[in-house]
Design a binder for these strands. Structure first.
Lengths: 229, 229
DNA sequence: TATGTAAGTGTACAATCTACATTAATAATT
DNA sequence: AATTATTAATGTAGATTGTACACTTACATA
C-alpha cells in the first residue's frame, strides 16, 4: 500500500538557528563551538533536536532561549535540509530558523558558558555539515525581508540614530546607500518617533534619536508596503 | 546532555504536494480522494512519507510522478508543518512542496486510478488535516514568485497566445491586468519567441502564438529582473 | 573666537507606471 | 461580393517614483 504509516521510516528532526545580530562593527551571526562529537571543537550553528511533544517553532524558541536567555524574539522558519549524510551520525533532517536580536540584550554569560561567539558575517569560520549553506540562504532571506517589512529594527537598541539605521541596512544589503534618499524613504513610511533627545557620542552636533513606532507600523501593515533601497 | 542523538525523538516525515495547473477555466489544484484511513473518502493533497534513503526533493518528485506520470517538473519546497496532532494517527511533520504543471500533459489515466481530480482554486473542497493552510500558503508563494521569476510558463502549453498568458497571470494574482501594459512589460523582458503561426480558435483575426525562450531567459537570469504587474 | 566634524536638508532630471481608445484582420453571414 | 461581428494589435501623455548630488547648521573642543 502506498501510504502506510507503519511501514514508513522515522527520522531525527533537528532545528538549527541562524541568529543575526548587529553592533557598531556590523552584521554578525552567533556560532557555537561544539562540545560533543562528531566535529567536537568545530564551529556550528546553535541547534537541537525536536522533541516529541514540541512544535518546530517552539523548538527554535527554546533553543534560542537556552543559549541567549532571550524570549519573545522574532523567528522565522526557513528551509528543511535533508541530504542523506548531512549528519554523519544518523539520518537527520534539519529545519533552519532565523532570528534577529540586539547584540546588547542577550545574556553574555550564557553565551560564554556555551562557547558561543559572535562573528561578522563576512569573517566567520567554516561551519560543520551544511551549516554554511544554511547561513547563506538565511542572508538571502534577510535581504529579501528588508524590502517587504521594516525588519531590522529588532537589531538596534530601542533608541537609535538615523546613521545607525542606515548602517544596519547597508550591512544587511552589503551595499552603500545614499543618505538623503534613505532617510526620506524611511520617513515616508512614517513608522518612527523622532525624540527630542540627541545622541552626542557620534558628533559635536549630536544626532536625533528615534524609536520604532509599533502602533503606526501595525496600522500600516495591511497595505503591505515595499521599501526599495 | 543537551544534544544527544540517542535520547532524541524520531518522527515521521511526510511530503505534501500542492500541484497547480491551468486551463481555459482558470487556475486549479490537483487533489486526491483518500482511499485509506484516517479520513478515507475525504479530499487531500497528494503526499507520501519520506524514505530512509531519500532526500525531500526526491520524495516530492517521486510522489508527483506516481500520481501524474510526469518527470522533470519544477518543484519547490515551501514549509514544514509540525503541529503535534496535525495527523491524528501518529506524530508526523509534513514538508510541503509546490509544483506547476500543464494540465494537458499529465497521464489522465493515472490520475483517475488514484481518484484524483482537478479543482478550481476558488472552488475546492475542504481538505483534511492542515492541507487548507498549506494550499493558502502555496498560493501566496506562487504570487510572490510571479513577481521575481517568469514562472507560470510551465502552466501553459508550449505554444500560447498573449491572451492565454494574460489570463494565467490574472488567475494567479486574482486581479484584472491592463492588456496593453501587460504585453509591453512581458515584451520588455525579451524572453518570448513570436512565431509566424496564429491561433485561430479564439478569434476571426487570429492571435500570434509565442513560445518561451529558455536560452534568452537563462542569459538574463543573472540580473534577476522584477516583473511588477 | 576659530576650527573641525558629522548632522540635516531639497531639487532637478530620469525612469517607470498607469490609464486609456482606435484601427486591423479575418470568418461568417447575407 | 459586401457587410458584420469579433478579438488582436498597438502608442502616448501625465503622474509617480527613483536617483544623483552639495551646502549649511549645530556644537564641542582647542
Amino acid at each position: 500500500m502506498l501510504n502506510s504509516y507503519s511501514s514508513a521510516d522515522k527520522v531525527l528532526l533537528a532545528v538549527d538557528c541562524i541568529i543575526f545580530g548587529f553592533d557598531n562593527e556590523g552584521l554578525k551571526i552567533l556560532l557555537i563551538q561544539r562540545d560533543f562529537e562528531p566535529e567536537k571543537g568545530k564551529w556550528s550553528l546553535i541547534g537541537g533536536f525536536l522533541k516529541r511533544d514540541e512544535v518546530l517553532d517552539s523548538a527554535a524558541t527554546r533553543i534560542l532561549n537556552t543559549y541567549t536567555g532571550l524570549n519573545d524574539i522574532y523567528m522565522e522558519q526557513l528551509y528543511a535540509y535533508s541530504e542523506i549524510n548531512r549528519d554523519p551520525v544518523e539520518r537527520t533532517v534539519s529545519v533552519s530558523y532565523f532570528a534577529l536580536i540586539n547584540i546588547e540584550n542577550h545574556n553574555a554569560e550564557l553565551i560564554q558558558n556555551y562557547h558561543a561567539e559572535w562573528f561578522p558575517i563576512n569573517d566567520a569560520p567554516n561551519l560543520i555539515f551544511d551549516h554554511n549553506e544554511m547561513v547563506q540562504n538565511a542572508i538571502k532571506r534577510l535581504r529579501y525581508k528588508t524590502s517587504v517589512k521594516p525588519i531590522g529594527f529588532e537589531l538596534l537598541p530601542e533608541k537609535f540614530t538615523m546613521r545607525q539605521l542606515l548602517e544596519l541596512y547597508e550591512a544587511i544589503l552589503s551595499k552603500e546607500l545614499d543618505k538623503r534618499n534613505f532617510i526620506s524613504k524611511i520617513n515616508s513610511l512614517d513608522i518612527l518617533n523622532k525624540l527630542d533627545e540627541k545622541d552626542m557620542q557620534s558628533s559635536r552636533k549630536g544626532s536625533y534619536l528615534y524609536t520604532f513606532n509599533k502602533e503606526k507600523y501595525e496600522e500600516k501593515l495591511q497595505n503591505n508596503f515595499a521599501l526599495n533601497l
